[in-house]
Design a binder for these strands. Sequence first.
RNA 1: GCCCCUGUGGUGAAAUGGAUAUCACAACGGUCUUCGGAACCGUUAUUGCAGGUUCGAGUCCUGCCGGGGGCACCA
Length: 568
Amino acid sequence: MNIGEKLSKAITEAISDLKLPDSAVSLEHPTEISMGDYSCNVALGLAKKAGMKPKELAERISEKLTEKIGQIPEVEKIEVAGPGFINFYLSLSFLGESIKAILADEKFGENKIYEGKKVLMEYTDPNAFKVFHIGHLMSNSIGESISRVLQFSGADVVRICYPSDIGLHIAKAVWAIRKKISEIPKDEDPIDERTGFLGKCYVEGTNAYESDSTAKKEIDEINKSLFEKSDDNIQAIYKKGRQWSLDHFEQIYKKLGTKFDRYIYESEVGKKGIEIVNNFIDKGIFEKSNGAVIFPGEKYGLHTRVFINSAGFPTYEAKEVGLNVYKFEQYKGVDESIIITGNEQNEYFQVLQRVLGLIDEKIGSRTKHFGHGMLRFADGKMSSRTGKVITGESLLKDVEKLVWEKIANRELSNEEKQDISQKVAVGAIRYSILRQAKTGNIVYDFSKSISFEGDSGPYLQYSYARAASILRKVGAVKSDFEIKNDNFIARLLYRFGEVVSRAVTEHEPHHIATYLINIAGAFNNFYANNPILDSGEEETSRIALTSAFAKVMKKGLWLLGIEAPEKM
RNA sequence: GCCCCUGUGGUGAAAUGGAUAUCACAACGGUCUUCGGAACCGUUAUUGCAGGUUCGAGUCCUGCCGGGGGCACCA
């Protein structure tokens, strides 16, 4: 039982001893540490029922609590404050024990909220023949972090990527490629050159589709041929381009540190989607309309959507139906199936969820969609004028270059510099995405998103590297110490597990990001004001504190999908 | 037109219905520059507007205003 649970239990008992009505006990950490480590507001809620003033009631409960737990070593004092809060101040001996627990327990911070549960996580989902854009970076960062937080909470997580490798967008690209056969890069050319060519062709095809009716007709033909695999020539171009894209994406995942367990391609699930949709026309879920098969969402207060178009091909909608049913066939005993996409798809996913529920109640209720905010450009005009589109990959490269410049003069091998540049760049980008709630939009400001100061990933990594540097200078961290002076960092470190629990319950990694910034600030403050090495009788406890901080920071960064370099 | 999301210092964000609204950036001023300066300390708010619920509202409800997104054969 951790300290929070201990206190809650004692409060519940005190309330019962005083014959007060049952009340849910919630503990929180006051914003100001001067108001205690934990605070409880039961007296405020119970006052009316008990017919007492909140403050008097708080005093009564507080007296009872002092009898019960006032003498245990964890609690230094209990105070009533403000309108009727009961505040708990933890003792230095508790802080010392909590630091020892962090050092000794490799599983510190983990919880069992998802123990024995299986969770499918689908995220990133790039499109073949198109660039890996910043939206994919967002989906990847959020999905990877939630995956890790779930694992940390006991879940069996299956990471799934659903790349789009069929559909009109591919036909557009293929159409343009056929117009410029002579310009096709060779297989030996650098991969980003090859995929860059594909991306350019996609843009050309898209423009032609809108402005040129002949081209539109041709592209529709190609689309048909792609579904039917009816033209060897088109198939050859398609297969080559598809593979280039997928290889390229794989490189990016590797750099980001995501390892998918399973790829399910869009081209695999269309047939299944059509079958399912057709099977449910008779049951009244889908309807035929103007030659297409639709889901009449308006009946349910949702959008009406086309699932099979009038040419007989599955739209995105039918493919998603196929995909999500397929997932549950492939993996047994799934408790949650989570999909991360941009929030422009929110309403569409409401339709999908309703459809899935009508097809199979279990699949519908266990499938959850989280739409993340969009990334927009602070200087959108400039990027369109110069034609420079910032892709996910170019962003990674640009940031890596900046880090490299920053560490150019350090005494590190080129290999180390390369490694650090990559880790810090990924840290900067992932953190800038994960520092805020996932629904919020991010206004993309280049200088800010790669800022290495203050509220940033590199600041966290730097704090870790500083601690690591000290620890390199000492031998084993000793555990025979007492904490004799109060310090803020110790009052934060034991809370790590609570923060993770909240993050997993809400599927919100930014709680961890916020927490890490707090402990990094506390550590840097501690570091700036207290010598650690050669600090006399304080040395052992300060080294232990440094080591505990480093452990928590490293775990926390891992949960965000960010590596903690020993040097930078 | 209908529906969904959103509005917090100059800027970007945080805050399980709780106390004096927290953090970072920018600005200004300072520390230190002997454990790694990507550091540390200090100074800057009518939570869009108006009602309501509550002992208590940035948070919940209603209306209005502003921003973003979606609404039949794209993904």
